[in-house]
Amino acid sequence: MTLYLFRLECLRMLRDPRYLALAVVAPIGFYLLFASLFGGAPAQPGELRDTVEIMVAMAAYGAIWGALSATGPRLAHERASGWLDQLRAMPVTARQLLTAKIAAGLTVALPALVLVCGTAVVAKDVRLEAWQWAVLMLAMWLGTLPFALLGVMVGMLVGPEAAFPLSYGLYMAASALGGLWVPPAHLSAPLLDVARTLPTYRLADLGWRIAAGHPPAVADVAVLAAWSAGLAALTVLVQGRRQGRLRRTRAGIAAAAPVG
C-alpha cells in the first residue's frame, strides 16, 4: 500500500507541468545559460572547471525544488481539501503517509540531478570518472532529504495559499545565500559564514568536492544530517501536538457551524 501510494505521489508530480517547468526544465536551461556565459575560462589549479561547478550547482538547485515542492505545497493543500481527513478514516497510518511523501520527494528530485548532469556531459563536454558520477548522484540525491523534510514542515504549518510562495521564497533565498547562483568563491566572508550553515550550500559543496576527486566531506554530511534530524524532530513535535488539538478544534468547528 505504502509503495502504491508512493507511486501515485510520484505520478502526480510527473503529471504536473509546474513541477516539470521549475524542477527539471529551469535548472537545465539555467545550466546551459550560465555554462555558456561563464564556462569559457580554463580552470585554475586546484579549482573546478566552471562548467562542472555550475553543473553541480544547478543539479542541486533543481533537485531541491523537486523535493520541496513534492511535500510542502501538496501537504498544505491536502490538509485543507480534506484528503488527509479521508485518509484518517482509512487503514493507513500517518507514518506510512509521510514515508510515501518523503520518498516521493526524494524520487522527483532525481530527474534534475540526472538530466542536468546529462546535459553537462552532452552539451559542455564534462567528464568525470565513473566512481565520481556514481558517488555524486547518490550523495546529492540523499542530500535532498532535509528539503523534503522542510517541505513537510511547511505543509504542516501553513495553509494552501501560503505554502507555495513560502516554499518558493525559502528556496530562492537559500539558493542565493547558499552559493548556487553566485560561486561561493565570490561571496564575501560574512556571507560565506552564513552559506556554510545552509543545507543548500552543503548539498552543492558535497557535489563540488566529489567532482574535484575528493571523498564526501564530513562537514557537509554533518550539516545536512543535522538539518534533517532537526526538521524531523520538529515534524514529530508538531504532529504530536496537532493530533492532540485536532480532536478538539476540528470537531468544534463542525459542531459550531450549524449554530452560527
Binding site: L5, L8, R12, S81, G82, W83, D85, Q86, V92, A254
Partner: peptide, 24 residues
C-alpha cells in the same frame, strides 16, 4: 466511511485512487 467534508487526492485518476484504497 464516506465522510461529509473529506476530500480527494488530485493529480490521479479515479481508477488509481480506488486502487489505492483497495490496497489498504
Amino acid at each position: 466511511a464516506m465522510l461529509q467534508d473529506s476530500g480527494l487526492m488530485p493529480g490521479v485518476t479515479a481508477a488509481e485512487l480506488v486502487g489505492l484504497a483497495r490496497r489498504m
